[in-house]
Nucleic acid binder design. Sequence first.
DNA 1: CTTGCTTTGAGGTGCGCACCTCATCTATCT
DNA 2: AGATAGATGAGGTGCGCACCTCAAAGCAAG
Lengths: 340, 340
Amino acid sequence: MRPTTKDLAKAAGVSLATVDRVLNGRSGVRDKTVRAVNEAIERIGFERNQVAATLARQRAYRFAFALPRSGDEFLEEIIDRIREFDKAGRAEMVEADVIRLDDRDPHRTARTLSRLSPEDIDGIAIMAPETPQIRDALLRMRERGIRTIPFVTNQQEDGGEGFVGIDNRGAGATAGRLMGRFIGPAAGSIVVLTETTQSRDSLERRLGFDGVINRDYPDLTILPTLETHGDPGRAQHVLRNALHSHDDVVGLYFMGAEARIPIEVARALGATEGRVTIAHERTPATERALRTGELDAVIHQDPGHLVRSAIRILRAKCENRATLASQERIRTEILIAENV
Amino acid sequence: MRPTTKDLAKAAGVSLATVDRVLNGRSGVRDKTVRAVNEAIERIGFERNQVAATLARQRAYRFAFALPRSGDEFLEEIIDRIREFDKAGRAEMVEADVIRLDDRDPHRTARTLSRLSPEDIDGIAIMAPETPQIRDALLRMRERGIRTIPFVTNQQEDGGEGFVGIDNRGAGATAGRLMGRFIGPAAGSIVVLTETTQSRDSLERRLGFDGVINRDYPDLTILPTLETHGDPGRAQHVLRNALHSHDDVVGLYFMGAEARIPIEVARALGATEGRVTIAHERTPATERALRTGELDAVIHQDPGHLVRSAIRILRAKCENRATLASQERIRTEILIAENV
DNA sequence: CTTGCTTTGAGGTGCGCACCTCATCTATCT
DNA sequence: AGATAGATGAGGTGCGCACCTCAAAGCAAG
């Protein structure tokens, strides 16, 4: 039989109450006693039974996802996966909720976050831009005892607090490699389209993309990144302009998280015909475009995996456990028509 | 608060003992009573607390993976993931073990399986060829109350019992598409190498591969599949012969699960230079080859995902629960040097 | 009606732990 | 020495359910 807290108490020569104090990080225990208990844990190979611990808590783990209010199909996919997890998770005493943040107003976002209490929530995964207000709000939440983790959109890596999402530089490099190989021996230029070049994700993807193309495909020229700001009219305008002023465009790279608008615009302009076109994130729009041949490849991160990984990591933090690194690495997936 | 069995008993107008009988499928309950309880479950939205249920069982869930005795790096990866899960799973009262099967002798395999008792094991994931003896052994295990699921290597889909693994036809098609696109406008022939053409997996992959190449790349010719039988000498012999008799080989497709030998042989012959080369499954050997450029792409299924998915499905079967379909679909991943 | 079988109820036990209270003990300071 | 604060022990409760026993009730056939 596996050792229980009772065995641990005996092995450490202390009472169950003290074992409880040490295991759950309560105050009022001498360092020496803490060490004695920890030594006994090692010695007898004690491992807390998480099933019993969860039941004894008498409340479910409550996790939240703080997501931007604006967002298109990829965000919807993520929200669907959160709801799905929540539904299935209740039987396991884990709840997952969505909090929408006003991403235009960092102060308001910070205020929303500061209202969260450890009474209501055990941990939170946050998709938000990197601003001082938000960094500050995160710090204060952690002080209050709420576990946090950056989600999809990275925050500056300050405390090694983990991050759930892909390596965007690698994702850009992956797109670049496919672009180069799919174009083959032809020479020409590549149009890059995104919502905004301001975000860290965009910057990193572009860096990775440029790195591969510039090094390995000297016959290809990457044009300056065009911005859509999520506006179809503007998207159409900039894309049409680019195609007019460059008659040698052989590739299109839709770098942002929301490829729906670029795809629709490109379709209206007949821009994908004869050009290699690559986008990010599987959504209903990109999946359809892959099947029709308008898109040649999609670089993807699995939203279900993102959601479940964030929850597993937050939960492990609550329980002072390590996670399975192999399970939490979010893969940069390549999708083509044959494996969507 | 969520309804408990107590609430359910009251709502159904029966005792706790009867609720227990119905929930755990024990005998000696009239149909009418069963219906009354099920109706009450729907009405009040009862959902069993799996945490409490697991604790009350007073024993961990025990799952096993029945794997062939022969196998190379990919099998090792799977075993590593099983051990890893087992280690982490003990705190959650889930254990995972490995049973090696003598894959040369179906009778012995069947005998090994028939010795397993529901006392020792709750469910088993099986990677084994499709033979009458094995099919029979599986059937009898299920009758004894052990849950089973085919793993990586598919069994004939008889009872819709689920399957953990990729769609091999789709995987072959994916390889075919990448082969066609990477080769580009060049014409020539493609060498296909595998361990044995007898296995269902090989057949399906070849079907998918042929489908794409024959339809969309008329300038490419696929040569008859060469067999290595896991023997480096033989592999070298057949590959060298093929390259001698065809001076227009532009692509190599290593179709089997163990690409290590083909890669080493191709390296010795300098066969990958100037040819598009695609293999299956990420292993130390294929990962290295991707980085050196000997391989252009690897079609992969994640071993960690395979293992955890099998366990989740088996467990759900034990608890009479549904699984999250979105989580259990094993993806056919494409790996290139940039996203390994 | 009795006999024998099936169905149901009532009640208890324990899983391993979190969380709580209160009493006792120990070290430190004045 | 006594006062004070901190450290520890002893013991209890309950989480929601599985699993068990035994008695009682229902039901069918003869």
